[in-house]
Nucleic acid binder design. Structure first.
Length: 528
RNA sequence: GGCGUCGUAGCCAAGUGGCUAAGGCAACGGAUUGCAAAUCCGUCACGCGUGGGUUCAACUCCCACCGACGCCUCCA
């Protein structure tokens, strides 16, 4: 069963075949580092990190490049505004970006090339384009000659006329065609500048990607990714430059992720309609208006920084949330969505806790999991129905991933697997009299191993959750105190003094601590 | 205005030219429990924006309409 991917270039799903067998070259447009990353900047990295994990799991050797654009008009303006230098600002924002990637579990990026360190490579492409008639110098600038490029516009499917219709003609009327874009921009006094054959200046917006992709991955790459908003003009121009320069197809598959939209809190429609009073309809109008004002996160002032978001939700919740939806769909991003998502994730952690309690191997650090599809263990065994179910779930997970990296379907398989594993624990009474049934415990461990294998592909459940939870609290003192209360309550229950027992539990509930009475004792967890 | 995407239960969200339309959250019934929590079992779209068309057969293809949204503004 081949992997199929949706290619923006052809607007359809295609079978995935790499330029070189067994080798995937992947390029994702990274950030311009002039402000702290917001959550929208994490969508691409999380998705392509997952794609890389899956391709590696399927046996490909994957090289993944994400550029850092550290010279740009926006950077210059922002640095001026803050009274700092472009380098200092870029450095700070790049560190912020790296921090966020790490927190989100994005660790598969092989190269982070910096634009400022590849000016020479850019010059080579620009010179080659000039030599071939695809570009022309003009007063210290160099422009790409769109008219000379027969298939310009093929990615975003617009003709030169259409491009022109949407272009502002005011600024550069000396360009041969309004759609022509700058490869090299001459610098004004005081601006960062690099020497070039056409005079001192800085790179145009798109050239850095062409240069760095070519240097690190070669003339032909397999996957080029980015947000849908980059399709035009950025990717269109990047493609035009690269292919005009080399005469070869630049990228086989163009993958574009959908954009995030900020939804302001919960939905208010629907329920209020029933009341029918004036106040309610006013509230509805307000709600509608608020919804209309939903903004795309990018560039908007209200966009919360990633770090601000992580104060409220663990990074893993955010990652899980992003993967629960198809990568090409737009996503409404709101607190209520995240909160719901966190609830559903909690169930997975309870399963992991239960497993760790029942068996020796620690799920996170000891339990081994297959790293490749090939090596994935066979799932024959007893009880047959249980293993058959696991095998079917594994197949469903992989089928979903094969189909244009449908992480939503894969997540659903994970949920079903949770149900199967919990059901097995219940059937076998592993928390009660079946506690020492080693065969059943072994079967459970195999199931959990498979679960871990699949979760690894999505990059979730790789670390113990950071928020306080289960018996896994960090502070010994708290644990001792809880143990004391639990013993006290157990004594009360034994003596049938339920008022005292319930008072203890109720008081703990008020403190957001939940007790769980299990056959083998009482556990507790804190609800954030 | 031009190009493009989408509209699936109370909410979120997969998916398919034809057996019973994934999964999550919420809700409800049952098992379990002293009562809870957790877990398990069960219920929860005769229906996939509206109206046509193609087809033996469409929610899935085509057309129109309504609605939401994106890009065309150096935003991932």
């Amino acid at each position: 069963m081949p992997i199929r991917v949706y290619n923006t270039l052809t607007r359809q799903k295609e079978e995935f075949h790499t330029v070189e067998p067994g080798q995937v070259k992947m390029y994702l447009c990274g950030p311009t580092v002039y402000k702290p990353a917001h959550i929208g900047h994490m969508v691409g990295p999380v998705i392509f990190d997952t794609i890389k994990r899956y391709l590696a799991y399927c046996g490909y050797r994957v090289t993944w490049v994400v550029n850092i654009t550290d010279i740009d008009d926006k950077l210059i303006h922002k640095a001026n505004e803050l009274g700092t230098t472009v380098e200092a600002l870029a450095r700070r924002m790049t560190d912020d970006y790296f921090d966020n990637l790490r927190l989100m579990g994005v660790d598969g990026i092989d190269h982070f090339p910096y634009a400022t360190q590849h000016v020479r490579e850019m010059h080579e492409i620009i010179q080659s384009l000039i030599d071939q008639g695809f570009a022309y110098p003009l007063n210290g600038d160099v422009y790409f000659n769109c008219t000379h490029d027969a298939d310009y516009g093929k990615l975003s499917r617009r003709s030169l006329d259409e491009v022109m219709a949407g272009t502002r003609v005011e600024a550069n009327d000396r360009k041969r065609h309004p759609a022509d874009f700058a490869l090299w921009k001459s610098s004004k006094p005081g601006e960062p500048a690099w020497p070039s054959p056409w005079g001192p200046g800085r790179p145009g917006w798109h050239i850095e990607c062409s240069a760095m992709a070519r240097k690190l991955l070669g003339d032909e790459i397999d996957i080029h990714g980015g947000g849908l908003d980059l399709m035009f003009p950025h990717h269109e121009n990047e493609l035009a430059q690269s292919e005009s320069c080399t005469g070869k197809p630049f990228a086989r598959y163009w993958l574009h992720n959908g954009l995030l939209r900020k939804s302001s809190g919960g939905k208010i429609g629907g329920e209020h309609d029933r009341h029918g009073d004036v106040a309610a309809s006013e509230a509805d109008l307000m709600a509608q208006k608020a919804e209309q004002e939903e903004q795309k996160l990018a560039g908007s002032k209200g966009a919360e920084s990633v770090k601000g978001l992580f104060v409220q939700f663990p990074p893993e919740t955010v990652r899980f949330f992003l993967l629960a939806t198809h990568y090409r769909s737009p996503v409404d991003f709101g607190e209520d969505r995240l909160a719901e998502c966190e609830k559903s994730i909690d169930g997975f952690y309870r399963l992991i806790e239960t497993f760790s309690r029942l068996t020796k191997p620690d799920f996170f650090f000891v339990l081994p999991a297959s790293q490749t599809r090939e090596a994935s263990h066979d799932l024959a065994g007893e009880p047959a129905a249980y293993f058959a179910e696991l095998a079917a779930l594994r197949a469903r997970f992989l089928e979903s991933m094969d189909d244009d990296f449908n992480t939503g379907g894969a997540v659903a398989a994970l949920f079903d697997m949770r149900k199967t594993l919990n059901g097995f624990i219940a059937d076998q009474k592993l928390e009660g009299e079946g506690r020492s049934n080693t065969n059943a415990l072994t079967a459970l461990t195999r199931g959990m191993t498979l679960f871990k294998e699949l979760a690894n592909i999505l990059g979730v459940f790789r670390q113990p959750v950071t928020k306080p939870s289960g018996g896994g609290g960090n502070e010994a003192f708290t644990n001792d105190l809880m143990q004391f209360l639990i013993t006290l309550r157990a004594d009360s229950r034994k003596a049938k003094q339920f008022e005292i027992a319930d008072k203890i539990r109720k008081s703990l509930t008020d403190l957001k601590v939940t007790l769980e009475d299990r056959p083998d004792g009482t556990g507790w967890r804190r609800d954030a």
